[in-house]
């Protein structure tokens, strides 16, 4: 029985930990499928976390914080588009600039407004998102199996967790079942084909980046107004890069990217669970070793263990119409 609840809690934390990765990976899919590299997921996630926390603190409503975070992230995506789509700059350089800018900006603004470098005030219950208990979770709790799955694994998450997993089929549907998705995929593969079909290549890339901004904002808000009750310095902690890795590992496809995110989330959940646990025959594993698991896995996966990942053909190349 204890083993079962162990498993349940492990799955439960996997779902929670994977949430920002899923949002970020879905955001990345939109940008990169349109042919624009997005290393700036990390910076945008951090920006969203900061803006959501600050917005919610001043306005007293986490939803308004989220809205501001969306506006901030879409603006950053537009900035990236302005530099790399309109002005045909190097996309990686533009992303790195955004990432560095945000690390400094969030720290500096927090210091200026709250007197603490890179820390915002703790949010009270009205200012943050709370865990959502699904209907009948309490009454079903004691039913074997079903109860464990429903009450212990599925119920009791933050709203973002549910939204993240709902976003995956939605992204799949948009990318593969709509005309917008067809154009999106085409513009990342062969922009000339899109142009000669009478579609504006630049407008398509800006649209993709706007969606990218909205999705990544959810990841940041999840960090600072749901799982945590404030923003702290560099709280995105590389999740943007991890999500990018998951997206590549998932071959720019929402379903496989989701699996990759869950895998990363699971190793993270596992390392937290394993800390301080005495394993039979081995004894206690040093905590540093355990904490390294997700990163080692990332390296192994990306080093070609999963076969060749084929990127959209035109990724990273600005579209130049006339010679």
């Amino acid at each position: 029985m204890e083993f079962l609840s162990d498993i349940a809690s492990l799955i439960n934390s996997t779902l929670r930990i994977s949430t920002p990765l899923v949002f970020a990976a879905m955001a990345g899919i939109f940008a990169e499928r349109s042919g624009v590299i997005d290393f700036s997921l990390e910076g945008k996630m951090l920006m969203a976390a900061f803006v959501a926390a600050v917005g919610s603190y001043f306005l007293g409503n986490p939803w308004l914080g989220l809205l501001l975070a969306i506006i901030a992230c879409v603006s950053l995506s537009m900035l990236h588009g302005f530099a790399s789509v309109t002005y045909k700059g190097d996309q990686v350089v533009s992303c790195v600039a955004i990432n560095i800018l945000i690390i400094g900006l969030t720290t500096a603004l927090a210091a200026a407004w709250f007197g603490q470098a890179g820390l915002t005030p703790t949010l009270n219950e009205d200012q943050r998102f709370l865990e959502v208990n699904l209907p009948f979770a309490e009454s079903l709790k004691d039913v074997p199996i079903v109860g464990t799955i429903y009450s212990d694994i599925l119920s009791g998450h933050y709203i973002f967790v549910y939204l993240a997993y709902l976003s995956v089929p939605l992204v799949f549907w948009v990318v593969f079942k709509t005309s917008f998705g067809l154009r999106l995929r085409a513009v990342g593969e062969n922009p000339s084909a899109v142009d000669t079909a009478g579609i504006n290549v630049f407008a398509m890339r800006y649209k993709a980046l706007a969606i990218n901004g909205v999705l990544i904002a959810f990841a940041g808000a999840h960090l600072s107004t749901a799982v945590n009750a404030n923003f702290f310095r560099e709280m995105s902690a590389g999740r943007g890069y991890l999500a990018l890795a998951a997206m590549i590992f998932g071959k720019w496809h929402p379903k496989t990217a989701l699996i990759a995110c869950l895998l990363f989330g699971f190793t993270d959940a596992l390392q937290i669970r394993l800390q301080g646990v005495e394993l039979p025959a081995i004894g206690e594993i040093p905590v540093q070793l355990i904490q390294a698991i997700p990163y080692v896995l990332t390296v192994v996966l990306l080093a070609g263990f999963v076969g060749k990942a084929i990127a959209p053909n035109a990724i990273g190349q600005p579209y130049i119409k006339e010679r």
Partner: peptide, 26 residues
């Protein structure tokens, strides 16, 4: 065009309707 304006990993159908889908959802 001399260099074909086709998306190589798309099907023939997808290439042809691109931009002329006539509907938002297929």
């Amino acid at each position: 065009h001399q260099h074909f304006m086709l998306v190589e990993n798309f099907t023939v159908l997808e290439n042809i309707i691109l931009g002329f889908e006539g509907e938002l959802v297929f």
